[in-house]
Design a protein around this nucleic acid. Sequence first.
DNA 1: ACCTGAACACCGTTCAAGT
DNA 2: ACCTGAACACCGTTCAAGT
Lengths: 232, 232
Amino acid sequence: MGDSPRSRRERPAKPALSRQGIIDATNEIMRSEGLEKATMRRVAQALDTGPASLYVYVSNTTELHAAVLDELIGSFHSDGDGDWVARLDALLAGYSEVLFTYPGLARSALVLRPTGPNSIALFDRVLGLLLEGGIAPDRAAWGVDLLLQFVTATAAEHSAPAPSDAVARGQQGDPERFETAVRDAATTGTPHLRAHMDAVLGGTPAQRFMWATRALVAGITATPIPAEPANR
Amino acid sequence: MGDSPRSRRERPAKPALSRQGIIDATNEIMRSEGLEKATMRRVAQALDTGPASLYVYVSNTTELHAAVLDELIGSFHSDGDGDWVARLDALLAGYSEVLFTYPGLARSALVLRPTGPNSIALFDRVLGLLLEGGIAPDRAAWGVDLLLQFVTATAAEHSAPAPSDAVARGQQGDPERFETAVRDAATTGTPHLRAHMDAVLGGTPAQRFMWATRALVAGITATPIPAEPANR
DNA sequence: ACCTGAACACCGTTCAAGT
DNA sequence: ACCTGAACACCGTTCAAGT
């Protein structure tokens, strides 16, 4: 009994594989090294096994990433007080924060249409707040998509593929590139851009985020859905 | 003279490499096989050379994809007539059509913040239409981003990674998965979702697209930008 | 200058074989 | 059942060497 032969030292006991263990390890790698490092091979290595072993618990890379995302969505609680607008702001800010912390996941979320239990719960909470605000249920129902899509897309925009990839510098959607392009173009055939360049380039990201959510809520509130109420 | 020695037959003359030729070949592969097949190696093969040769004209894969996107954005002209709303609809529909035809590119566009000349021109056109609609310049300037982001994100959502990948079936954001998840969840702790399930799941994609653009324009029109007009 | 063969350092996924 | 070594079929990018 006592020490089994191969438990000499090192090897921190190598916990048995499990779906949750794989998800946790993936989460950890994503946070510290970014989505693109959270590969099957890298995760397997972190768990001291081979990539093939993961396929017992996870059906493919996409599904694994989706599982991590749903877990993260379940991890933030922002049931602040205040009126429904304040609570909506807090909720969207919380979601946004998660996506900014794991930027690569925002890209996935856009394509994946998260359907895990926590994602659905988030959808329900946003819908509840819009209804509480007195928005017509039809409009609120469609509006949730618009709001969550905006948050996701905004986070995805700010996601550089590799945290410190030499190639990425000046390549990605860093605002600078866009700003330079606008200033350059303003001298040629883009009259409106030239006339309003300062407005186009103005505002902090936080100001724009806040303005956009205001505009979305206003639009959702005021815009009737088409005649056929909700066909299909 | 006449036939040079190595022009026996076959080999359709192998045109010299050029940046434009590389872009065209990439475009063609994207259309016929999807973004994920438009790799350096695959493009090089189509041009009958090795991948290393492409790096003389193109700095990396991302830049190549961005070049194709800007070319496509320049390729559609929808200066229909009618009032500004009709023309805005036509313009966004045209952009949307391109992105739906090359779905993978929509994902790229979100992260890339396209800055090519044609992309900037599109931005200018949308801005012009909003101004024509009498929207305050400050709001219009920020609103363009919101509108283009919506179109791009919507196209990205509907993009399955591989056109006919066995794994993709039931995996991606096909509406069915979301619908199933909603119906399942509706029995548990998601009261609002249950109460308004039909509204949430209702509407055709086209109806939702139209409604969303209406809501966006309404919100942009009605929402004042923050006190500091356009700092920075 | 332009082009390229070959290499480096990776991927996801499958499958026969082991325990 | 669960796990895995090894293989298959790919990637992007670099670089020394050729023309």
